[in-house]
Nucleic acid binder design. Structure first.
Lengths: 324, 324
DNA sequence: TTGAAAGCGCTAACAC
DNA sequence: GTGTTAGCGCTTTCAA
C-alpha cells in the first residue's frame, strides 16, 4: 500500500503539501496540486484512516449497542442509524448486549479503546454506571425520560393510556395485559399508563408479565387465554407479544376482533402483514433512530444542541385486531 | 486519558517494559510486572487500540455488507456474525448496500481505508469487480457456488427442486411461482430448480418475477391471484413473498392449504408465528453467518483452511400452508 | 530483564 | 506556497 510519503516522493513535493491537497486544508498552487493528484492516481494511493484517527482523535465511527438485532424492532432502528451515520460520513459498529450488563460493559470498554466518537444505546436497565466517566457522548434510545444521559424516546405512559382508552371505547368488558419485563422502564411505563386509565374508569385488568420476544410470548399468551377465557380485550407490551397472542387465540378458535381485541405496541412492519393485521400503538421507529444519531453526532462534533432530550410522537394505528 | 508513557513514568520503567507486560510478549521480572500493573490500575490506563492497529496493521474488526438489515433474513445473519466475531475478539461494522453497486464500492473503500481485517458480503450481483485488488480476505455469504471468492452458501437449485417435488407430491395441479429478482443468482437458482423438476414431470408453472421484500410482494401476489384463480400450488422465492401471498390469499377468501398451497424459502422466524404458518425450505441462517465468519477470520489470520467454499444443508419444514 | 530509539502513516505548527 | 519536523500512542528490534 502506498503511503503519503510515496506520493510525496513520486510527485517531488513534501508530505505536508500532499496532506494539504488531500484535505484541502490550505492553498496549494494549482500546478503542484495537479502533480500530486496525478501521483495519487498513478500510485493508487488511499489515505490510511487509522493513522489519521490516531492523530485527530476522531474515528468517524459510532457504536450502536442494542439488546438483540434479531428482535424485529431493532433492525429498523439500526437501519436508520446506519443511514444517518453514513450520511454524515460515519460508520457504525453493531453490538448485541442481550440486555446483559457485563456484556454491555465489555462493549463500551472495547469501543472506547477504539476511540469511537460516540455511543448509541438502548440500555436495558436504568441505573447502570457503565456510562460513567466516558470520554465520548452517549445518547440513549427508547428509554423513558432520560436522566443524566441525553435521549430520544417516546411517551410510553401515554401510549399505554391510549391503548386502554381505545379498548375501553371499543366496548371492552374484561381487560388483560401481557406486559414486557418490568425491569425495562419502557415496559413498566406502558403498563402503568394502561392501568391508570382503566382505574379512572373503575376497571381493572389481569396482568401477566412477559418478555419482548416470540418464544416466551407464545407460552404466556397461551396461559392467559387458557386461564381467562372471559377476557375480551388485551393490551400487549409490544407487537411480538401481540403476534404470539394472535397465534394462540386463533389456535383456540377465537374470533378476532369479535371475541378478542388486541392492541400491540411499536408498529413493526410485520404487524401489518399478518392476518389479522395487528392494531398497535405506533412509534416512529426509523425517525427515532435517525434523530438519536443526529443528536449523537451533534454532540460528538460539539455543535450547539437545543434539546438533549427529544420526545417523539406516538399514534394509534387501527388494523384488524380491534373494532375501532 | 493516560498513555503508555504515563504508566512508564509512574512505575519508573520504560515504555517497552510496559508494553511487554501489557501483551505478555516476553519475560518481565515479577516485581517490575507488579509495579506496572499497579500503575496501570491507579492511572486507570487503557491501551489505545488505534495506535496498536496502526502499528500492527490489524484492527480486529470486520465489515459486514448486506443489502438491508431491515429485511428479516439479515438480522439473524448479522446476529450470528456479531456473536462469532465477538467470540474471537472482533468487532463488526454494519453496512447496508441496498444491493447498489456504487454504495457497495464506497463501503469497501472506506472499510479498506480503515484497515478492517476482512469483509463479509452478500453481494447483490455476481460479476462485480468491487472486490478486485483488495488487501484483505473476503467471504461471500448466501451466494451460489462461489467463483474466485470463498463463500458459504446453500444449494438453492436443490431447494427449488425440493419445493417442486413437495408441491407435486401433495397433488398440485396448477403451479405457479413468484421468484426473487433474477439478477440475484440465489433467486435464479431456486427458480431453475423448481422449473426443472416440474419439467421432468411434464408440468409447467406460471412465473412472476418479484422482489425480496414485503411491499413489492403484496402487489405481485395480488396480481398472481387475480389473474390466475385456478392456481393451487405456489413456490415463492423467499418467506417474505410467502407471507405477502398468504395475506392476499386470505383477503380473497381462499382456504389454505385446501385451495392454495404455498412453500417459501429461508425459514425466517416469523414464518412459524403467523397463521397459517408458512411451510418453507429452510436454510440454517444462523449457522450460515457463523461459518462464514469463522472462515473469514481463519483467512484473516492466515490459518490453513481446508475448504474455502462451504455448502450448508437445507430442509423442507412442513407447516400449515401445505398438506404434506 | 530491561531500555533507547526507530517507525507505523498521518497532521499541524512553524519557518522560510 | 511549500518544506521541516515533531508528535499521535503503540510495538519491536537491537544493545546493554
Amino acid at each position: 500500500m502506498a503511503t503519503i510519503r510515496d506520493v510525496s516522493k513520486y510527485s517531488g513535493v513534501s508530505v505536508a503539501t500532499v496532506s494539504r491537497v488531500l484535505n484541502n486544508s490550505s492553498k496549494v498552487k494549482s500546478t503542484t496540486k495537479k502533480k500530486v493528484l496525478q501521483a495519487i492516481k498513478e500510485l493508487n494511493y488511499k489515505p490510511n484512516a487509522v493513522a489519521k484517527t490516531l492523530f485527530k482523535k476522531q474515528s468517524y465511527s459510532i457504536g450502536l449497542i442494542i439488546p438483540d438485532i434479531s428482535n424485529p424492532f431493532f433492525p429498523e432502528v439500526a437501519r436508520a442509524v446506519e443511514d444517518t451515520a453514513r450520511h454524515y460520513g460515519y460508520r457504525v459498529i453493531l453490538c448485541n448486549s442481550d440486555g446483559n450488563r457485563e456484556k454491555e460493559k465489555d462493549y463500551i470498554e472495547a469501543l472506547s479503546q477504539n476511540h469511537v466518537d460516540g455511543l448509541l444505546v438502548t440500555s436495558i436497565s436504568e441505573n447502570s454506571d457503565n456510562f460513567k466517566g466516558l470520554h465520548m457522548p452517549v445518547v440513549a434510545l427508547d428509554r423513558s425520560k432520560g436522566k443524566e444521559i441525553p435521549c430520544v424516546y417516546v411517551d410510553n405512559y401515554e401510549g399505554g393510556k391510549l391503548a386502554a382508552r381505545t379498548l375501553f371505547e371499543n366496548g371492552g368488558k374484561v381487560f388483560a395485559e401481557i406486559s414486557g419485563p418490568y425491569n425495562l422502564i419502557t415496559a413498566k411505563e406502558r403498563s402503568r399508563g394502561f392501568h391508570d386509565f382503566l382505574k379512572k374508569k373503575e376497571k381493572t385488568a389481569l396482568t401477566y408479565e412477559g418478555e419482548f420476544d416470540f418464544k416466551h410470548s407464545i407460552v404466556v399468551a397461551g396461559k392467559l387465554l387458557d386461564e381467562n377465557p372471559e377476557v375480551d380485550s388485551v393490551f400487549v407490551g409490544n407487537d411480538q407479544i401481540g403476534i404470539a397472542l394472535i397465534k394462540e387465540a386463533m389456535l383456540r378458535g377465537l374470533r378476532i376482533p369479535n371475541d378478542l381485541q388486541i392492541i400491540g405496541f411499536d408498529g413493526i412492519e410485520i404487524g401489518g402483514l399478518i392476518t389479522p393485521s395487528l392494531s398497535t400503538i405506533q412509534q416512529p421507529i426509523y425517525d427515532l433512530g435517525k434523530e438519536a444519531t443526529k443528536l449523537l453526532l451533534d454532540l460528538a462534533n460539539k455543535k450547539h444542541v437545543e434539546q438533549t432530550s427529544i420526545c417523539m410522537p406516538i399514534n394509534y394505528v387501527k388494523r384488524s385486531t380491534t373494532t375501532g
